[in-house]
Design a binder for these strands. Structure first.
Lengths: 224, 224
DNA sequence: CTTAAAATTTAGGCTAGTCTAAATTTTTGT
DNA sequence: ACAAAAATTTAGACTAGCCTAAATTTTAAG
């Protein structure tokens, strides 16, 4: 029941979880993991053997890897902690949304169920983190986000900005400089046929152009 | 300037700091450290060599060890983080004072100056942790507590309860069950000559007896 | 369908941090 | 002051995580 899972192992499980959702394939490869975690394939192979030993993954040599239910629960719990701490950092300590990732990467490994339960309550049981990513509940249930990138809507109309695909500091800072925050209403007034840029009005402000690249990393829902 | 200090090294520095203050001697011995950290003397010797290499301690084989200024600053910073997080856990998350130590032992190693600065501000720049221990300031200055154990006052009179010598869960729970909290006023009405127990009134409540052992672990100041 | 390229694993080595057992140094008791 | 006890260090071994280089397996291209 209570196998001890190290910080490093938690990071591997999180990586496998993230990659399997990123590419919408259940099997994740050794190279995908080594790229994601910035270490060597041989190192990953070592760890996969250990994780399989602990029944946290299903591992077939040369084939790939996927999480067991126990592995998935562990990964989800780390993600829950990461996102709750991000809410804490932004809502309570007034960090900006582009400043919290590195600190949350540390805090996500703090091990105390009681702490997380109380932190969740203290924050008002938030459903989304500062980047719009859903926070898994205490039972490991995760809302599936049905939002899609702005550039996949080929029509004019009104949308709500609910999340980002790209989480890099530079992209988030760019959105801040544009004046865009989670929850803003985006009115697409024009889609430029030449470069597929989007002419957009944020809330009631002046309209401006979003490059297709920016539009492809902004998740929106059709405004109700 | 920026030597990386591991979590384990931080724990050794904190142990050396704590022990040197506990026994009011600048030199700390290998055995004291190994007892305090629950590992073997040989393990400690290894680590002392590494810490000396990094100029965090002055180490003379067979003689003992003391912190360099850099080692002291590092230790103090860990203690500052530990105590600030304890305030967070008690004041914001409503943990009890006997529940926070283990979690703070983890949180004290989170590495972000910006985080600590903001946490400090969020908590209202507290000067003491939930057990009455002083919180070092951002420059590593630590208020010296001039309180002494209740049983060293051989006289009747009024005192303020400002801290504890013993931080164990059972002792803290015992104080809670007695109804004693930091800041309470203690009126010593009688000192029993037979067993050196203290008849004490807490605030305006009924008086009760404190064993000498309890009295020796309660830090008080003479009430102004 | 065969072979070159790509992906993966194996083999062997490194460091940090731990241990036990043996050797050494310091302290203490008479 | 000297032997026994206590404290400390050295030597050698182990695990977790990482690495490089070589071997193996899978994939892909002609």
């Amino acid at each position: 029941m209570c196998v001890i899972i190290s910080l490093t192992e938690e990071n591997y499980l999180k990586a496998i979880y993230t990659l399997s959702h990123l590419f919408e394939e259940s099997e994740v490869s050794t190279n995908q993991i080594s790229d994601h975690l910035n270490n060597k394939a041989a190192t990953v192979t070592d760890m996969l053997k250990r994780l399989a030993e602990k029944k946290l993954i299903h591992y077939i040599p040369y084939q790939g890897v996927k999480l067991t239910e126990k592995g998935r629960q562990t990964a989800i719990k780390v993600i829950r902690k990461h996102r709750l701490w991000e809410v804490f950092l932004v809502d309570k300590l007034q960090f900006k949304w582009d400043e919290v990732h590195e600190i949350a990467e540390q805090l996500e490994h703090i091990n105390s169920d009681e702490l997380i339960q109380r932190l969740d309550k203290f924050l008002g049981k938030p459903k989304f983190d500062p980047h719009g990513d859903p926070i898994p509940d205490a039972n490991g249930q995760l809302n599936v986000v049905k939002a899609i990138p702005l550039n996949q809507h080929k029509i004019k109309g009104q949308f709500t900005f609910v999340g980002v695909c790209e989480h890099s500091k530079t992209f988030l800072q760019h959105l801040t400089s544009i004046g865009l925050k989670i929850g803003d209403v985006l009115k697409v007034e024009e889609i430029n046929e030449f470069d597929n840029s989007f002419k957009v009005k944020i809330n009631k402000n002046n309209s401006q152009f979003f490059s297709n690249k920016v539009a492809s990393n902004i998740l929106v829902e059709i405004k109700k």
